[in-house]
Design a protein around this nucleic acid. Structure first.
Lengths: 331, 331
DNA sequence: ACGTGTTTTGTAAACGATTTAACGATCGAG
DNA sequence: CTCGATCGTTAAATCGTTTACAAAACACGT
């Protein structure tokens, strides 16, 4: 059917071993042989079957990035970082989506178990810590953006507790005391951490925690709108709102805009992630910025190191975040 | 090193053929053998090496989606459609990004040439029509969202000419005569087509084409802002603006908002794509909606059909679009 | 006991590459 | 002139599966 290394060997009048050596730029091969092989390759339009090659070498030089969906443009920079690191080591990055289904996530990890990729990075896993820990014992798995409590897996993320604390501290230092929190009911560790940070900031300043200022919704913008409406329609209105994602913050601001609230004066808004729209939406949103590119780069670098070593690094790396101050905090 | 089918065979006291038969749920194998194999598999923690399997069967049941970057959340629905179709036929979808580099796009297609995937779908290719046509002669390639002039490749997209015409006709029917166009300098076929549609609509209504109403920029929101500023600061101001993407339209509206223009009355705005932010941004954006999910689904269905047939379908399928009317056209 | 037909099993040959071991040729040194 | 080292090359083993083919086991009617 299709042209194999044998056909090339025949056409070049050498053995398959010689063809292989030429293709892999090994030494010990005469100039004439090199030319003959290259000509044969070109004239036959040969390209090597990697299934055969990978089987023999038992490595594919491919890494799988498993994400929930491509919807969050937020992942984009992380993936770029991953690709940068991968490329510099001669690896490719493939992406697959779990559609928020743990079973499908497991199915995708099957590519790892069945040797179709050399390693996998989970960005926002749906599987539980124990399952992942066990799988990571025998396969090269890492996590990025999210950490999991008690998970024995190489992880690269930021300190979400501190980030939440920093954001809320900033609002407090701006003289605000009644700070609303809009978060999610279904909790990822990062949203839990951010809420913990929120509480710590209040505590540091002796502000009592008030559950009427906290709204639990979903990750959608609409949920932010609802949350803002709920918080604003009660007696004890907040004078600032911290949303655990920019999307939620933008939804919340939509409500504020529609009711004539002066954003940045009457009520301050703080988001999280610094997505593209955070500085397109008017008024521009103050937010916490994660080093996305660096996280992606680091996790792949460490993962590849692990693939070479037999004493795998299971550390938790936390990269520094920063506050981006824009109009919604009056800056 | 790792456990193979041979180890399982030994542990279960049967031949490798029997193990293979059990694993592939073939008939003609006794219940005792099935049990013995399953137990061995479980106790050894065996999972089959797909490199061996794929090599033997010379198929991987994987399809590669090649996109420019994961930034455009726009692709998300298309990919979901692709996955839906793929899954129902027992295929997986992998995603890889070209980073707008034709060389890298070719490198990724290498996965197809080297039999690491069975087919590839290009979403917004950087390679030229002739190159793609040639490659498609010997490999299973399809295109989605974008078409290429004179490209002999299975393609699923919408009729961008008609879509552009429909959008502009709508503005004209709202009584507008000076309709601005904000498009891009670096042209994809779809943006060319949309501009053609713009001209056709003007012509149909006897409105002369006025090049001072057309701005050529980039795909960024900022470019929309600049474009709007340019169009609005001249003498012959437009009374409506058609942007070839929502992102550009939102950027354009940012300028309008900052200068107190009454969007939806003084100036109407029409976007393209119906991205998530089109109905989050205030005022809500009127736009052209593509059947993203369906395009993804169809292209994979047709591609898989092609993989089974030896007379590959190279048709151009154009799915119907629709106009979404919101506040920016006064609806 | 024997042939016949039906399951169930095992053996061995692929699949397409890399790599090891072995070979003959060439060359320099003693 | 011979021996050992070096170089270019080849034949064959190997990677982990699937599967065509053959053999074995079993059931059954005669």
């Amino acid at each position: 059917m299709s042209v194999t290394i044998k056909d090339v060997a025949k056409a070049a009048n050498v053995s398959v071993a010689t063809v292989s050596r030429v293709l892999n730029k090994k030494s010990n091969v005469s100039d004439e042989a090199v030319d003959a092989v290259n000509n044969a390759v070109k004239s036959l339009g040969y390209s090597p079957n990697y299934l055969g090659r990978d089987l023999r070498k038992s490595e594919t030089r491919r890494i799988l990035a498993i994400i929930a969906s491509t919807e969050q443009s937020f992942y984009s920079e992380v993936l770029r970082g991953m690709e940068e690191a991968a490329q510099s080591k001669g690896y490719d990055v493939l992406i697959a989506t779990t559609r928020d289904d743990p079973d499908h996530e497991l199915h995708l990890l099957g590519m790892l178990f069945s040797r179709s990729v050399d390693g996998a990075v989970l960005l926002g896993p749906k599987l539980d810590a124990e399952t992942i820990s066990e799988l990571a014992e025998n396969h090269h798995i890492a996590m990025c953006l999210e950490r999991l409590e008690n998970c024995r897996v190489l992880t690269v993320t930021i300190d979400n507790v501190k980030a939440g604390r920093d954001a809320v501290n900033y609002l407090i230092n701006k003289g605000r005391r009644r700070i609303g929190l809009i978060t999610t009911k279904l909790r990822s560790q990062s949203s839990i951490d951010r809420e913990v940070g929120y509480r710590q900031a209040l505590e540091e300043h002796g502000i009592p925690y008030d559950e009427s200022l906290v709204y639990y919704g979903t990750y959608e913008a609409e949920s932010g709108t609802k949350g803002c409406a709920a918080l604003m329609s009660q007696e004890n209105k907040p004078d600032a709102i911290f949303a655990i994602s920019d999307m939620i913050a933008i939804g919340a601001m939509n409500y504020a805009l529609s009711t004539g609230i002066n954003i940045g004066k009457d009520v301050l808004f703080f988001g999280f992630d610094d997505i593209q729209y955070a500085h397109i939406f008017v008024p521009h949103l103050s937010t916490v910025s994660q080093p996305c590119f660096m996280q992606g780069k680091l996790v792949v670098e460490k993962l590849i190191e692990n693939m070479k070593s037999d004493e795998p690094d299971q550390s938790l790396y936390m990269l520094p975040h920063s506050l981006i101050l824009r109009e919604t905090t009056g800056d």
